[in-house]
Simulated scan of single mutants.
Amino acid sequence: MTTESPPEDAQDKYIVPGLERGLRLLGEFSSRERTLSAAELARRLKVPRSTVFRLLATLEMMGFVERTDGGREFRLGMAVLRLGFDYLASLELTELGRPLLDRLRDEIHYPCNLVVRDGRSIVYVAKSVSPRPFASTVNVGTRLPAHATVLGRVLLEDLSLDELRALYPESRLEVFSESTPRTVEELYDMVQRDRERGYVLQEGFFEASISTIAAPVRDRTGKVVAALGATIPASRIEPDQLDNMVEMVRGAAAELSRLLDYRPPEPPRPFGLG
Protein backbone atom coordinates (compact mmCIF):
# COMPACT_ATOMS: atom_id res chain seq x y z
CA MET A 1 0.00 0.00 0.00
CA THR A 2 1.46 3.38 -0.98
CA THR A 3 0.67 6.82 0.33
CA GLU A 4 0.15 9.35 -2.39
CA SER A 5 0.73 13.06 -1.95
CA PRO A 6 -2.41 15.17 -2.25
CA PRO A 7 -2.81 16.84 -5.61
CA GLU A 8 -1.14 20.24 -6.03
CA ASP A 9 -4.42 22.15 -6.03
CA ALA A 10 -5.35 20.51 -2.71
CA GLN A 11 -2.03 21.62 -1.21
CA ASP A 12 -2.52 25.17 -2.48
CA LYS A 13 -5.59 25.73 -0.32
CA TYR A 14 -3.38 25.48 2.78
CA ILE A 15 -0.89 28.08 1.56
CA VAL A 16 -0.92 31.46 3.31
CA PRO A 17 0.03 33.94 0.56
CA GLY A 18 1.25 36.68 2.90
CA LEU A 19 3.49 34.30 4.82
CA GLU A 20 4.83 32.82 1.60
CA ARG A 21 5.69 36.25 0.25
CA GLY A 22 7.32 37.29 3.52
CA LEU A 23 9.55 34.21 3.56
CA ARG A 24 10.41 34.64 -0.11
CA LEU A 25 11.35 38.24 0.64
CA LEU A 26 13.71 37.19 3.43
CA GLY A 27 15.23 34.61 1.10
CA GLU A 28 16.30 37.32 -1.34
CA PHE A 29 19.00 38.53 1.06
CA SER A 30 22.37 36.79 0.83
CA SER A 31 26.04 37.26 1.73
CA ARG A 32 26.55 38.92 -1.65
CA GLU A 33 23.44 41.10 -1.40
CA ARG A 34 23.19 42.15 2.21
CA THR A 35 20.98 45.17 1.47
CA LEU A 36 18.07 45.53 -0.97
CA SER A 37 15.60 48.30 -1.73
CA ALA A 38 11.83 47.94 -1.69
CA ALA A 39 11.75 48.59 -5.44
CA GLU A 40 14.26 45.81 -6.12
CA LEU A 41 12.35 43.39 -3.88
CA ALA A 42 9.09 44.22 -5.67
CA ARG A 43 10.76 43.51 -9.01
CA ARG A 44 12.16 40.18 -7.87
CA LEU A 45 8.99 39.00 -6.17
CA LYS A 46 6.82 40.29 -9.05
CA VAL A 47 4.37 41.96 -6.66
CA PRO A 48 3.24 45.60 -6.34
CA ARG A 49 5.57 47.88 -4.44
CA SER A 50 2.75 48.69 -1.99
CA THR A 51 2.60 44.99 -1.07
CA VAL A 52 6.35 44.92 -0.48
CA PHE A 53 6.11 48.00 1.75
CA ARG A 54 3.47 46.25 3.89
CA LEU A 55 5.60 43.11 4.12
CA LEU A 56 8.68 45.14 5.06
CA ALA A 57 6.74 47.14 7.66
CA THR A 58 5.56 43.91 9.30
CA LEU A 59 9.00 42.29 9.19
CA GLU A 60 10.65 45.46 10.51
CA MET A 61 8.19 45.66 13.40
CA MET A 62 9.08 42.07 14.32
CA GLY A 63 12.82 42.67 13.95
CA PHE A 64 13.38 40.44 10.92
CA VAL A 65 14.58 43.34 8.76
CA GLU A 66 16.00 46.76 9.53
CA ARG A 67 16.55 49.93 7.54
CA THR A 68 19.95 51.05 6.32
CA ASP A 69 21.40 53.73 4.05
CA GLY A 70 19.14 56.41 5.49
CA GLY A 71 16.05 54.21 5.25
CA ARG A 72 16.28 53.62 1.50
CA GLU A 73 17.38 49.99 1.77
CA PHE A 74 16.81 47.04 4.09
CA ARG A 75 18.90 44.23 5.52
CA LEU A 76 18.21 41.23 7.70
CA GLY A 77 17.61 42.00 11.38
CA MET A 78 18.71 40.16 14.51
CA ALA A 79 15.33 38.42 14.89
CA VAL A 80 16.37 36.11 12.05
CA LEU A 81 18.96 34.68 14.43
CA ARG A 82 16.35 33.84 17.03
CA LEU A 83 14.84 31.31 14.64
CA GLY A 84 17.62 29.00 15.79
CA PHE A 85 21.06 29.44 17.30
CA ASP A 86 22.48 26.84 14.91
CA TYR A 87 22.40 29.70 12.43
CA LEU A 88 24.56 31.79 14.74
CA ALA A 89 27.39 29.31 14.38
CA SER A 90 27.44 29.88 10.63
CA LEU A 91 27.72 33.65 10.82
CA GLU A 92 30.89 35.24 9.54
CA LEU A 93 31.17 37.30 12.70
CA THR A 94 31.13 34.36 15.10
CA GLU A 95 33.23 32.13 12.86
CA LEU A 96 35.97 34.73 12.72
CA GLY A 97 35.54 35.87 16.31
CA ARG A 98 35.59 32.58 18.18
CA PRO A 99 39.31 31.78 17.62
CA LEU A 100 40.20 35.32 18.69
CA LEU A 101 38.13 34.92 21.87
CA ASP A 102 39.92 31.66 22.65
CA ARG A 103 43.32 33.26 22.10
CA LEU A 104 42.43 36.26 24.27
CA ARG A 105 41.13 33.97 27.01
CA ASP A 106 44.43 32.07 26.97
CA GLU A 107 46.35 35.35 27.25
CA ILE A 108 44.39 36.92 30.10
CA HIS A 109 42.91 33.76 31.70
CA TYR A 110 39.41 35.21 32.08
CA PRO A 111 36.13 34.63 30.20
CA CYS A 112 35.74 36.50 26.92
CA ASN A 113 32.54 37.28 25.02
CA LEU A 114 31.25 38.60 21.72
CA VAL A 115 27.87 40.35 21.70
CA VAL A 116 25.62 42.12 19.19
CA ARG A 117 22.70 44.50 19.70
CA ASP A 118 19.07 43.65 19.01
CA GLY A 119 17.08 46.80 19.67
CA ARG A 120 17.37 47.66 23.36
CA SER A 121 19.09 44.37 24.25
CA ILE A 122 22.51 42.86 23.77
CA VAL A 123 22.70 39.22 22.68
CA TYR A 124 25.67 37.00 23.43
CA VAL A 125 26.66 35.23 20.20
CA ALA A 126 29.99 33.66 21.22
CA LYS A 127 31.89 33.05 24.44
CA SER A 128 35.14 31.49 25.57
CA VAL A 129 35.20 30.15 29.11
CA SER A 130 38.23 30.42 31.37
CA PRO A 131 39.47 27.32 33.23
CA ARG A 132 39.58 29.42 36.41
CA PRO A 133 36.56 29.07 38.71
CA PHE A 134 34.23 31.89 37.76
CA ALA A 135 30.49 32.09 38.30
CA SER A 136 28.91 33.26 35.05
CA THR A 137 25.22 33.31 34.23
CA VAL A 138 25.60 34.21 30.56
CA ASN A 139 25.47 31.76 27.70
CA VAL A 140 25.16 32.11 23.96
CA GLY A 141 21.71 33.60 23.45
CA THR A 142 21.59 35.44 26.80
CA ARG A 143 19.97 38.88 26.48
CA LEU A 144 20.76 41.85 28.76
CA PRO A 145 19.73 45.53 28.67
CA ALA A 146 22.02 47.52 26.38
CA HIS A 147 21.92 50.79 28.33
CA ALA A 148 22.86 49.11 31.61
CA THR A 149 25.84 47.01 30.48
CA VAL A 150 29.40 47.88 29.47
CA LEU A 151 29.14 45.81 26.30
CA GLY A 152 25.85 47.52 25.48
CA ARG A 153 27.40 50.97 25.86
CA VAL A 154 29.94 50.03 23.19
CA LEU A 155 27.13 48.93 20.87
CA LEU A 156 25.31 52.25 21.29
CA GLU A 157 28.29 54.39 20.32
CA ASP A 158 27.18 55.01 16.73
CA LEU A 159 23.73 56.31 17.65
CA SER A 160 22.98 60.03 17.62
CA LEU A 161 21.10 61.64 20.47
CA ASP A 162 17.91 61.65 18.37
CA GLU A 163 18.36 57.95 17.57
CA LEU A 164 18.85 57.16 21.25
CA ARG A 165 15.72 59.12 22.12
CA ALA A 166 13.78 57.11 19.54
CA LEU A 167 15.14 53.88 21.06
CA TYR A 168 14.42 55.04 24.63
CA PRO A 169 11.37 57.36 24.49
CA GLU A 170 10.72 57.15 28.24
CA SER A 171 11.80 60.05 30.45
CA ARG A 172 13.63 57.80 32.95
CA LEU A 173 15.64 54.69 32.09
CA GLU A 174 15.27 51.45 34.02
CA VAL A 175 17.93 51.27 36.73
CA PHE A 176 19.90 48.07 37.41
CA SER A 177 22.74 49.44 39.55
CA GLU A 178 24.03 52.71 40.97
CA SER A 179 26.02 53.16 37.76
CA THR A 180 23.07 52.88 35.35
CA PRO A 181 22.43 56.18 33.52
CA ARG A 182 19.08 57.64 34.51
CA THR A 183 18.25 59.55 31.32
CA VAL A 184 18.92 59.29 27.59
CA GLU A 185 21.02 62.44 27.74
CA GLU A 186 23.19 60.93 30.48
CA LEU A 187 23.52 57.73 28.44
CA TYR A 188 24.48 59.67 25.32
CA ASP A 189 27.20 61.63 27.14
CA MET A 190 28.54 58.40 28.59
CA VAL A 191 28.77 56.50 25.29
CA GLN A 192 30.35 59.49 23.53
CA ARG A 193 33.12 59.53 26.11
CA ASP A 194 33.51 55.78 25.55
CA ARG A 195 33.73 56.38 21.80
CA GLU A 196 36.47 58.97 22.19
CA ARG A 197 38.41 56.68 24.53
CA GLY A 198 38.10 53.67 22.19
CA TYR A 199 37.22 51.18 24.92
CA VAL A 200 35.36 50.80 28.23
CA LEU A 201 36.73 49.54 31.54
CA GLN A 202 34.38 49.68 34.50
CA GLU A 203 33.73 47.84 37.72
CA GLY A 204 30.23 47.01 38.95
CA PHE A 205 28.35 48.68 36.11
CA PHE A 206 25.79 45.88 35.84
CA GLU A 207 26.88 43.40 38.50
CA ALA A 208 28.69 44.28 41.72
CA SER A 209 32.32 43.16 42.02
CA ILE A 210 32.51 42.34 38.30
CA SER A 211 34.73 44.36 35.98
CA THR A 212 34.35 44.39 32.21
CA ILE A 213 36.77 45.51 29.54
CA ALA A 214 35.09 46.01 26.15
CA ALA A 215 36.00 47.39 22.73
CA PRO A 216 34.04 47.89 19.50
CA VAL A 217 34.16 45.63 16.45
CA ARG A 218 33.49 47.47 13.17
CA ASP A 219 32.61 46.23 9.69
CA ARG A 220 33.73 47.48 6.28
CA THR A 221 31.39 50.47 6.53
CA GLY A 222 32.86 51.57 9.86
CA LYS A 223 29.69 50.70 11.77
CA VAL A 224 29.95 49.07 15.21
CA VAL A 225 28.53 45.57 14.62
CA ALA A 226 29.68 43.85 17.82
CA ALA A 227 31.40 44.37 21.13
CA LEU A 228 34.23 42.15 22.29
CA GLY A 229 34.91 41.97 26.00
CA ALA A 230 36.50 40.24 28.95
CA THR A 231 34.84 39.70 32.34
CA ILE A 232 36.97 39.75 35.48
CA PRO A 233 36.28 39.54 39.23
CA ALA A 234 37.06 43.10 40.28
CA SER A 235 38.99 42.11 43.38
CA ARG A 236 41.44 40.09 41.28
CA ILE A 237 42.58 42.87 38.95
CA GLU A 238 46.13 43.94 39.61
CA PRO A 239 46.52 47.63 38.74
CA ASP A 240 49.79 47.02 36.92
CA GLN A 241 48.05 44.44 34.71
CA LEU A 242 45.12 46.61 33.67
CA ASP A 243 46.81 48.55 30.87
CA ASN A 244 48.14 45.36 29.33
CA MET A 245 44.74 43.64 29.51
CA VAL A 246 42.98 46.63 27.98
CA GLU A 247 45.41 46.61 25.05
CA MET A 248 44.87 42.88 24.54
CA VAL A 249 41.09 43.32 24.39
CA ARG A 250 41.42 46.29 22.04
CA GLY A 251 43.86 44.34 19.88
CA ALA A 252 41.48 41.37 19.57
CA ALA A 253 38.60 43.69 18.64
CA ALA A 254 40.77 45.52 16.09
CA GLU A 255 41.89 42.22 14.56
CA LEU A 256 38.29 41.01 14.21
CA SER A 257 37.41 44.36 12.63
CA ARG A 258 40.21 43.89 10.10
CA LEU A 259 38.92 40.42 9.28
CA LEU A 260 35.53 42.05 8.60
CA ASP A 261 37.29 44.38 6.11
CA TYR A 262 37.28 47.46 8.33
CA ARG A 263 40.03 49.90 7.49
CA PRO A 264 40.54 52.77 9.96
CA PRO A 265 40.59 56.19 8.31
CA GLU A 266 44.07 57.48 7.68
CA PRO A 267 45.10 60.47 9.81
CA PRO A 268 45.27 63.76 7.91
CA ARG A 269 48.66 64.52 6.45
CA PRO A 270 50.47 67.57 7.85
CA PHE A 271 49.81 70.72 5.83
CA GLY A 272 52.37 71.37 3.11
CA LEU A 273 53.57 67.75 2.77
CA GLY A 274 53.19 65.65 -0.32
Score class of each variant (00 low, 15 high):
16 V>Y: 10
110 Y>N: 09
92 E>A: 08
213 I>C: 01
175 V>P: 02
206 F>T: 04
150 V>F: 03
141 G>M: 11
94 T>I: 05
34 R>F: 01
50 S>V: 08
96 L>K: 11
208 A>S: 12
269 R>D: 07
122 I>L: 14
190 M>A: 13
117 R>T: 06
46 K>S: 09
94 T>E: 07
21 R>G: 04
88 L>H: 02
191 V>T: 11
143 R>Y: 13
235 S>V: 13
235 S>T: 15
14 Y>C: 07
5 S>V: 13
238 E>C: 11
205 F>K: 11
175 V>T: 15
211 S>P: 04
248 M>P: 03
108 I>N: 03
240 D>V: 13
19 L>C: 09
28 E>S: 02
80 V>P: 01
87 Y>F: 13
78 M>G: 10
115 V>W: 07
24 R>F: 00
177 S>N: 07
185 E>Y: 05
47 V>H: 03
84 G>E: 03
38 A>Y: 02
49 R>S: 09
5 S>I: 12
212 T>A: 06
237 I>R: 09
11 Q>E: 14
52 V>K: 01
192 Q>L: 09
67 R>Q: 10
127 K>E: 10
46 K>M: 03
21 R>W: 03
77 G>H: 01
218 R>L: 03
54 R>P: 02
37 S>P: 01
12 D>R: 12
269 R>S: 12
104 L>D: 05
129 V>S: 09
198 G>L: 13
228 L>S: 05
173 L>C: 02
167 L>V: 08
225 V>E: 00
95 E>A: 10
37 S>A: 04
198 G>Y: 07
132 R>C: 12
89 A>K: 09
240 D>W: 10
34 R>W: 00
216 P>K: 02
206 F>N: 04
40 E>N: 01
92 E>F: 05
144 L>H: 08
185 E>C: 05
273 L>M: 15
228 L>G: 03
174 E>Y: 11
6 P>M: 14
202 Q>D: 12
